[in-house]
Write a protein that binds this DNA or RNA. Structure first.
Length: 599
RNA sequence: GCGCCCGUAGCUCAAUGGAUAGAGCAACGGAUUUCUAAUCCGUUGGUUGCAGGUUCGAGUCCUGCCGGGCGUGCCA
């Protein structure tokens, strides 16, 4: 049991019979911000004083009198208006770290009641190259899945790819009018991407012309003139595809595998996997029945030729079928909820999607509730927009945004320079082969990129910046990877085997302040994971890992391991090092980030 | 117009209603014949946009205002 969980349980026992519904006060036990207030603090005396008509400090004293903290804490102190400050006893810290040493889960218990989560994330449009805007959903969703699973939940990852939308109409139009056959044979995806961008460009030009602005590019103006109303023409291709037109269907089936190979390559490099990839097309023949059901149950009705769901106090409806009979993503999303509920019976469905779709999800969830899906937590895990240097949203339409792969390449290139410089500067000369340097650069570069994203509160906007993403110091993955490598280096230098040491029965002692602080932080891993999951915020985990790596650095400076005064002390410190390394490794793993033995 | 979100150190951001609002970067000053200096220690830097309110206690909750972003019936 984690320290916090154990403290809560002891406080609960003390509060039973003292106040009604004592459970609600347990959240007021938390980690102290400042070490001088102890390791943990209980803040319930103040609100209870009000309720009981007593003085807060008296209430604190009464609680302490009822409290059995034997084996956990030193004598609690009452401070300020009525804070109860708790300092974990050395014996408890030693006992728990000793347990963690022998535990493959490093002291993190599996949840008592596992839940089933469906996590919907990444969801690129497969006809378009992935760009930087896709990274947030992908890495946040992946981190949440990994963390939920480690805690013992069932997390089903489902990549709801856009494989049926209007972008395919654009490609179909492009294919039929602008195809470079040779280029297509050599690299179909590249050519399809070129076609998409070209059609997009002509559309934008025509939009511009419609507003009375002139088209500067003569070539583009000619293309625009030769293909009037290209938007309508592309929509027609989409409609034909959806209606089962043989030629368009055949082409779609030809394009799709190539597009999927393309995104698979990126996922492989990002080390992201999905249990299912059920895209929009999967629900193609399930849409009509959704609308039918909505109408039959009186949830949706016709309005201006479209079928709409109206909500109490809301002006704008959710449209599930257009005037022309076509379905929309609201329809697909409802069909998807129905499928997921039937298939997996989840307790929660998490949508890791840009916050700009907030209204859509508000409507979607309300409609799902009307359809009877009430016992499922439908959660929009929204995140801020990816912004450019100009603080404007990244334009997915312009076609010349930063591609995701080139971004990865740049991250790895910069990491490679640093890896090499660092290795060259080692006191006894370089230790790492050129080939290995490249492998390390890949892990460090992509780790830095993911971490830059995950370490921010997901609700805030995300200003894209190479320098920020690729910074190798401060609160970054690199800092933690470095701490990990230093631990491994100590074991290598001393010729110790971590596994054997764990089994050796070596004792942990926590005399030095830096040792104690490090142990306390290691034991907080479980709390950090709980915080991460409760609000679906991976930055809780990154903040924890940063604290942990910091504590380790302080320990590293103050407590020499290999030159410890005795073998016992050396072994104790080795165990702390090993626990730190394992916690960092596991924590980063839950964020989808790897470690290296040497860097 | 209406709805949602945001406003915290020079910059980028943290802070489940708790004590003196914290980090990183930047700047400045120290530590190294390194168990890996991709490090550590220290200094400077704040009326948390403004004004009220609720509370024992507000960056956090409520109201109004100012500033910004996003969304707002046939894209996703």
């Amino acid at each position: 049991m984690s320290i916090l969980a154990e403290l809560k349980s002891r406080f609960l026992a003390a509060l039973v019979g003292y106040v009604e519904e004592p459970e609600q006060y347990l959240d007021l036990i938390r980690r102290s911000q400042d070490p001088k207030f102890g390791d943990y603090q209980a803040n319930m005396a103040m609100p209870l004083a009000k309720k009981l008509g007593k003085k807060p400090r008296d209430v604190a004293a009464e609680i302490i009198a009822r409290l059995d903290l034997a084996g956990i804490c030193e004598t609690p102190e009452i401070a300020g208006p009525g804070f109860v400050n708790l300092r974990i006893s050395a014996e408890k810290l030693v006992a728990l770290t000793t347990e963690a040493v022998a535990d493959s889960r490093i002291g993190v218990a599996s949840v008592a009641t596992p839940k089933t989560y469906v996590v919907d994330y990444s969801a690129p449009n497969v006809a378009k190259p992935m760009h930087v805007g896709h990274i947030r959903s992908t890495v946040i969703g992946d981190a949440l899945c990994r963390t939920l699973r480690f805690l013992g939940h069932r997390a089903i990852s489902d990549n709801h790819i856009g494989d049926w939308g209007t972008q395919f109409g654009m490609i179909l139009y492009g294919y039929k009018n602008f195809l470079d056959e040779k280029a297509y044979r050599e690299n179909p995806v590249l050519e399809l991407a070129r076609l998409y961008k070209l059609v997009r460009k002509i559309m934008d030009a025509q939009d511009q012309a419609a507003k009375g602005e002139s088209i500067a590019d003569a070539e583009l103006a000619a293309l625009s003139a030769a293909h009037p109303a290209i938007n309508t023409a592309a929509q027609l291709e989409t409609a034909k595809l959806h209606a089962g037109d043989a030629e368009n269907r055949r082409l779609w089936e030809e394009f799709l595998p190539a597009c999927q190979d393309e995104i698979s390559r990126v996922y492989k490099r990002l080390n992201v996997t999905f249990d299912y990839t059920l895209g929009e097309s999967f629900y193609e023949d399930r849409l009509a029945s959704v609308v039918e059901e909505l109408e039959k149950k009186g949830i949706a009705r016709e309005s201006d030729g479209a079928v709409c769901v109206f909500f109490e106090g809301e002006e704008t409806p959710m449209i599930v079928r257009k005037q022309d009979g076509a379905f929309l993503y609201a329809t697909t999303d409802l069909a998807t909820i129905r499928y997921r509920m039937d298939e997996w019976k989840p307790d929660a469905i998490l949508y890791v999607v840009d916050h700009r779709q907030g209204l859509h999800f508000k409507h979607l969830f309300a409609a799902a509730k009307l359809l009877g899906y009430e016992n499922v937590e439908l959660q929009h895990v929204s995140f801020g927009t990816v912004l450019g240097d100009d603080n404007r949203p990244f334009k997915t339409r312009s076609g010349d945004t930063v591609g995701l792969e080139s971004l990865l390449d740049e991250a790895v290139r910069r990491a490679g320079e640093i890896v090499s410089a660092n290795d060259d500067a080692k006191p006894n000369g370089p230790e790492i082969s050129a080939e290995r340097r490249n492998e390390i650069a890949e892990i460090v570069g992509i780790g830095a990129l993911k971490y830059a994203d995950l370490s921010q509160n997901r609700t805030s906007d995300y200003v894209f910046s190479y320098d920020k993403m690729l910074a190798m110091n401060g609160n970054t993955a690199t800092y933690m990877q470095y701490a990990y490598a230093r631990v491994r280096s100590i074991f290598a230098r001393g010729g110790f085997d971590a596994e054997a040491l764990r089994l050796s029965g070596a004792k942990i002692t926590l005399e030095a302040p830096a040792e104690r602080a490090l142990a306390l932080e290691i034991l907080r891993f479980s709390e950090a994971l709980d915080l991460t999951v409760v609000d679906y915020r991976p930055n809780q985990l990154t903040a924890y890992l940063f604290d942990l790596a910091n504590r380790y650095s302080t320990f590293f400076e103050n407590c020499h391991v290999l030159r410890a005064e005795s073998d016992e002390l050396r072994n104790s410190r080795l165990l702390l090092c090993d626990l730190t390394a394992r916690t960092i490794q596991k924590g980063l793993e839950l964020l989808g980030i790897n470690v290296v033995e040497k860097m």
